[in-house]
Design a protein around this nucleic acid. Structure first.
Lengths: 156, 156
DNA sequence: ATAATTGCAAAGTCTTTGCAGTTTG
DNA sequence: CAAACTGCAAAGACTTTGCAATTAT
C-alpha cells in the first residue's frame, strides 16, 4: 500500500482534513484506524451521492480494497454513527442509507407553550430525499420551523 | 367502560363507517373481504397507539382469530397501502409501522418561480412519526408549506 | 363457478454476531 | 504486547413468495 500518511492529492484539502479529523476522533476513543476504516470514511465524505447504502459503500470500498468484508462495513458504520460522525436513515424499503452528519438546525415550535426544540439537519433528510425523488423538488437549505405540540402540551 | 364483551359494540359509529368504507373500497377493486382482512382493518382503525408494527397487528388480530397468519397480515397491509388507506413508515430500526392515512394536504413552494406543488399528507407521515418517536412532538395537522426550488428552477 | 385469498413453509433481504486469526498503537 | 479489528460463516429480524387448498362474490 502506497504511503498511507500522505493525503490523497485529488481530494480537496478541506475534505482531507475532515477525513483526518474523523480518524483522529476514532483514535482518541481508543479505536484503531485500519485500511478498511479509512476507506469507508473516505467513501462517505467523497461520494457525490449523499445517501449511500451499506452495499454502495461496500462497492466503493471493495473497488480498491476487495478484502474489506461487508460485516466490517456494518461494524464501522455502527461505530461512526455512535460517534455522531454519520447519520443512518432508514428509507421506505430496502436498506438504510448513511451520510455524514451536518450541523444545520431546524426547529419544532410548540403552539401551546412556545417551547422550541432544536432539530438536527438529519431529521429532515429523509423528507428531503423523498421530495427530490418524487417531485424533483429541492428543499431549501435554510432552517425550517414546524409547528405542533410538545410532549407535555400534547398530553393535556 | 360500558360493558359488553363484544368489541364491535364499543366502536363509535364514525369508526365503523370508516371501516366499512375501506372494506367497500376493497370490494370495489375486485377484492374480497375476509375475516382476516376485516380484523386487520379494524385493528388499524381502533388501536389507541397509532403506529403499529406488523407484529402488533398480528397479536391484536390473532387474539380473536388465531388462524390469521402473519403472511396474510403482510399481504393485506400491502394491499391497503396500495389503496392508500394506510401509510407504511419505516422507522430507524426494527420493523416498519403502519397507520391509517389522513387527507391533509401540504405545499411545496418554489422560491424562484412561485410554483406550488400539492403534497399529500402521506409525504410528511414518516417525518411526523419520526418527530413523535424521537421528540414526543406532535406535528400540527394544519397544512405545512416548505420552500425550495422546483425541478425546472433547480436546473437553471 | 371462478378468481381472490389463505396458511404454510421456504426463501429473500438486510444486518448482526461468535470466533479465531491479524493488526494497530 | 494487549486490545482492537477483521474475515468468515452462521444466525437473526423482518418481509416476501410459490403453491395447493379454501372462500367470497
Amino acid at each position: 500500500m502506497p504511503g498511507a500518511h500522505h493525503r490523497d492529492a485529488h481530494l480537496h484539502s478541506d475534505t482531507s482534513e475532515r477525513i483526518e479529523a474523523i480518524l483522529d476522533l476514532l483514535r482518541s476513543e481508543g479505536g484503531r484506524v485500519t485500511i478498511g476504516r479509512r476507506a469507508i470514511v473516505t467513501a462517505l465524505l467523497t461520494a457525490n451521492d449523499h445517501h449511500l447504502t451499506a452495499e454502495d459503500i461496500a462497492k466503493i470500498v471493495q473497488d480498491q480494497h476487495p478484502d474489506v468484508h461487508v460485516s466490517t462495513i456494518y461494524r464501522t458504520l455502527e461505530t461512526l454513527e455512535r460517534l455522531r460522525v454519520i447519520d443512518r436513515v432508514s428509507l421506505g424499503s430496502g436498506g438504510a442509507v448513511y451520510h455524514p452528519t451536518d450541523h444545520t438546525h431546524h426547529h419544532l415550535i410548540c403552539d401551546a407553550c412556545g417551547a422550541v426544540i432544536e432539530l438536527g439537519h438529519e431529521a429532515l433528510a429523509p423528507l428531503k430525499a423523498d421530495l427530490e425523488d418524487r417531485h424533483g423538488f429541492t428543499l431549501s437549505s435554510q432552517p425550517i420551523s414546524l409547528n405542533g405540540r410538545c410532549r407535555e402540551c400534547a398530553a393535556s
